[in-house]
Design a protein around this nucleic acid. Structure first.
Lengths: 363, 363
DNA sequence: TAGCTTTTTGCAATCGTTTGCAGTCTATCG
DNA sequence: CGATAGACTGCAAACGATTGCAAAAAGCTA
């Protein structure tokens, strides 16, 4: 069917070994035969068979990226970045979706090493540490976004403590004292770290931590809805909510819409991780940008590094942090303590749209 | 490093061939040895090497999905569906992102066949027909969402003429007579077909087609913004806009926000293809659902079918259509000709939010 | 031109499976 | 009891590349 190395060798009247050496550029051939063979190979349309090559060399030119889903915008850009980077280097990306499920992750991992992947970037669930650790002996692994505490693997993380601190401080600087926090599950690195950043900012500002303002939950929109309701039903509801659980954002927005709460007039809203439509939303949502693109790039860098330096084992295993950035848009505003409780509920709802529109009306 | 078939055979004191036959269940072995070998294999933790197997059989257990991007929500669900379905059957999905670019598509295609993929689901750019046609001789291919007119490949399409017709008719039934259309590039199947559905609905209703109401453009948010401005700047602006270019939706929403146009009070808005946040947006956006999930499922079905019936070539090449569905939410309303021009601008904006809140307030 | 080193080439084994063919064993039948 | 069919099993050759080793060719010196 397709042209094999043998065909090329025959056409050039040399042995297969010579052909192989000439084409892979192992250097053991004369310049003349090398050129001749590359020419003939091209003419014949020869393409090396990665499977055959893989069998002999044990490498597949396949690199896997294992993420939880594709709904999360961060994972989307990571997938795109990783694919683009790898492709430029002649690798194919195997994208796998693990659903943040331990069993699925475990399954996928074994399938992947079966396929003799050359490298793996994984957002771990944290429940297959032993397996990951074992695999790491055979294939370079880089953990992304989450650390698997049971392992000692190279890990690229967002600087969540700093990001959460940054966001919280921003709200404090705007005069908010009661700041609701909706954050991820506390058995995940990011969940814990974002909480810690929030707490630190509060402490530095001398604001007492109020546990009724803090809610942690699963990574689904429903979490946002539930938590937002709890927060807003408080006798003294917060004047700002920091949604540090990306997936929960939609739920929060639904609740504020249901209750006709104007953002930012009645409530300031700050979210973690960007989504394409945050910028187009009305009002545009301010965010703490976790730097998904840079995270992915760094992860690829580290992976490539480990893939090159295959021999020297896991010396120099490091943890990297990519700093967060505050992106101010229109969903947070100065807190005015004059209007007590639910804030400017008495104000005409029309005013809110005016103010927010004014800010974004520069196109 | 890992356990090979040879190890298993030795442990069981049989030949490699017997071991192979026993484990692959080719049936040429006695039931007893089969059970014995499966047991031993399991005990030893044997996992067949897909690369070696692939070399011999010419199959890789890899199936590729080539889409334009991961930003488009339809592609996201397609990727998730395809991966889940294939995984259940022991295939690994190779997800590739082609960026709707001819050269990248061509590159990717050759890499994929190099890797001896067993099947391919592709959203074609339409510019590599010849190549696709050639590849189809070696590997089963199913086109998804777009047809490549230069080829004669099995194709799974959304029923865009019907969907656009459905949506337009819905707006007409609501009393709208001037309906703006923002649609995809006319060199794509979907672009042309959606336009045709729109035109047909208009014609059936006896409404004259007005070319100033129709705008086609690239699949980016900016298109939506530009087109929306043109429509709204018209001397007699439309009372409803049908955004049949998925990616353009964000741009349209930005413009309506900028101009403080209330939806649906001042303008009815209907979009094509669902996105997760349409449902949570305020007001919730009504859509024509293209059935991404079903499209993906059908594509997988057809691909598997072709992969099974490998022998009998491309007989029975068919085109499939997955019907569209109208999902009414809160962004369209009855047109009231009493209020001329910009519609019910006089009405209190509160009324709209009430109605939308009422509908979604069942959580 | 012989003798030496240095390139350049070819032979053949190998990677881990699958599979055609032939050989072995068991059981059945006449 | 011998012949024979049938069920299992093993040998060995693939699949398409890479690579150690040895042989051949080329280049060099004397």
């Amino acid at each position: 069917m397709s042209v094999t190395l043998k065909d090329v060798a025959q056409a050039a009247r040399v042995s297969v070994s010579t052909a192989s050496r000439a084409l892979t550029g192992t250097g053991l051939t004369s310049e003349r035969t090398r050129q001749r063979l590359t020419r003939i190979a091209r003419e014949l349309g020869y393409r090396p068979n990665p499977i055959a090559r893989g069998l002999k060399t044990g490498q597949s030119r396949l690199v896997a990226l294992l993420v939880h889903n594709l709904t999360n915008a961060s994972f989307q850009v990571m997938a795109e970045v990783v694919q683009a980077r790898l492709k430029a280097l002649g690798y194919q990306m195997l994208l796998c979706i693990g659903g943040d499920d331990a069993e699925q992750e475990s399954d996928t991992l074994t399938t992947l090493v079966d396929h003799r992947i050359d490298g793996l970037i994984v957002v771990p669930t944290g429940k297959n540490g032993a397996q990951l650790e074992a695999l790491a002996k055979d294939v370079p692994i880089v953990c992304l976004v989450r650390r698997d505490d049971a392992t000692d693997l190279e890990t690229v993380l967002a600087d969540d403590p700093q990001g959460a601190y940054l966001g919280t401080r921003h709200l404090i600087e705007l005069g908010h004292k009661r700041i609701g926090l909706i954050v991820g599950r506390q058995d995940t690195t990011s969940g814990r770290e974002r909480l810690s950043g929030y707490v630190r900012a509060l402490r530095e500002a001398g604001i007492a931590k109020d546990d009724t303002l803090i809610h942690a939950g699963h990574f689904v929109p429903e979490t946002g809805a539930t938590c937002a309701r709890k927060l807003l039903d408080l006798p003294r509801p917060p004047s700002a909510i920091f949604v540090a659980n990306h997936e929960a954002t939609l739920g929060v927005l639904r609740v504020t819409a249901e209750r006709n709460i104007a953002i930012p007039a009645d409530l300031s809203l700050l979210c973690y991780e960007d989504m394409p439509w945050f910028e187009w939303h009305r009002p545009a949502i301010s965010i703490v940008d976790n730097g998904a693109r840079d995270l992915a790039n760094l992860a690829v860098d580290r992976l490539l590094h480990r893939m090159d330096a295959k021999g020297n084992g896991n010396d120099g295993v490091r943890e990297y942090r990519v700093g967060a950035r505050l992106v101010q848009r229109d969903s947070c505003r100065q807190y005015e303590p004059t209007s007590n409780g639910r804030g400017g509920k008495s104000k005409p709802p029309a005013s809110k749209s005016k103010s927010s529109a004014a800010k974004s009306a520069k196109v």
